[in-house]
Simulated scan of single mutants.
Amino acid sequence: MTDLLRLFTRAHKLLQAASDEAMSAHGVRVGQNLVLEVLWADDGLTPGDLATRLRVSTPTVVNAATRMEAAGLITRRRDDADARLVRLYLTDAGRNAEEPVRAARKALAEKVTAEFTAEERAATESALIKIIGALERP
């Protein structure tokens, strides 16, 4: 099992570095692409709503939103119906990043699985889903 964990750790570090490089070419940091992906589907969520969908803590989303706002990808606005709430909205730059970021993610996925057979891709995806499920359970 130790070897498996070592391989996961090494793969994670390499994939994170490659993802960061691919995303930064479009003004997006690794992890921010996941926030953008949710907002592309459903713009105007609260940080808490985003955190729930991404399965991270609200402070994690708030910190990411601060950096993303500084980068011009999103803007924060008070909720019209409840001024206590803040909602996150895509800027034009955030919306315009969708196609290039999706293309970069697709290209990276193709690169890292280029030597996989269709069966290996399916098995890897299934195994990762099981690992995530096991670690997300309390």
Rank of each mutant, 00 (worst) to 15 (best):
L5P: 13
L5K: 11
R6M: 09
F8Y: 14
R10S: 14
H12S: 12
K13F: 04
S19A: 06
E21M: 10
G27S: 07
G27D: 02
G31M: 06
N33A: 11
L34K: 04
L36C: 07
E37F: 00
V38H: 10
L39E: 09
W40C: 04
A41Q: 15
A41F: 03
G44V: 00
T46A: 12
L50H: 04
V56I: 04
S57M: 08
T58E: 15
V61F: 00
V61I: 09
T66H: 11
E69P: 03
I74D: 06
T75C: 04
R76G: 01
R76N: 09
R77A: 02
R78Y: 02
R78Q: 06
A81T: 06
A81H: 12
A81D: 08
D82M: 02
L85T: 03
L85S: 12
V86H: 05
R87E: 01
Y89I: 01
L90A: 05
T91I: 01
D92M: 12
A93Y: 00
A93K: 11
G94M: 01
G94A: 03
N96V: 00
V101I: 10
R105Y: 09
K106P: 08
L108E: 13
K111A: 14
V112G: 11
V112N: 15
T113Y: 09
F116E: 10
T117E: 11
T117D: 10
T124A: 09
E125Q: 14
I129R: 15
I132P: 05
G133V: 05
R137I: 03
R137S: 07
